[in-house]
Simulated scan of single mutants.
Amino acid sequence: MSLTPEQNNAICIEFFEAAWNTGNVREDLLSADAVDHSLVGGKSKTEPGSGSFKHIVGMFRHAMPDVKLTILDEIYTADKVVHRWSLLGTDTGGVMGMPPSGKTITLTGTTVVRMADGKIAERWANVDELGLLQQLGVVPPPPGA
């Protein structure tokens, strides 16, 4: 079942908004062998199925239970969907294994998805981890900032 680029984009929005904003990783929108090519904290989490998606969403929702995803830009063509997004939340649970800071954090990134038969087949994400570490005070801001 081949969908239009607009339909593929709508599925991605539905999946990512449900996952990040409510914690519901919609397995019905993932292909059974979906691959998440994520790199979080310098560690690859590539594995087939929903496990990696659940791990990453769970990790950030544990750290920031009030996290809210906002999709800033959408680009889609054929079987590819690209979103530039931001996550906003309060670090009450400790981000990426660090102690809770109590700070409001804005995390930004870009996600590329490959769709197949109306489902998410692959995902790649680039996340501004340096900006996150600077907000947490782990890394100093750039000179003059």
Rank of each mutant, 00 (worst) to 15 (best):
D128F: 00
P5H: 13
P141T: 14
A116G: 05
S44Q: 02
L30N: 00
R84G: 07
P141R: 14
T22W: 07
H83R: 09
V95K: 03
L132H: 03
L69T: 02
S86L: 12
S2R: 09
K43N: 02
V35W: 02
K119C: 11
S44T: 02
T106V: 15
L87Y: 02
I75M: 15
G118M: 10
I120C: 11
T111G: 13
F53E: 01
G118K: 11
L87V: 06
W124N: 06
W124H: 05
D91W: 01
E17R: 11
G93H: 03
P143M: 09
H55W: 05
L69I: 03
E74D: 15
I75K: 13
V81G: 12
K119T: 11
R26Q: 08
A32I: 01
S101C: 04
F53A: 03
S86Q: 14
T108H: 03
E74F: 14
G42N: 07
T111R: 13
D66P: 09
E27I: 03
M1Q: 08
P140E: 08
L39A: 07
M115R: 13
D36L: 12
H37G: 05
V67N: 03
Q134V: 10
T22H: 05
S38Y: 08
N8C: 13
L136Y: 04
G89K: 02
L39S: 08
V40R: 07
K68Y: 05
E129H: 03
G97E: 09
I11H: 09
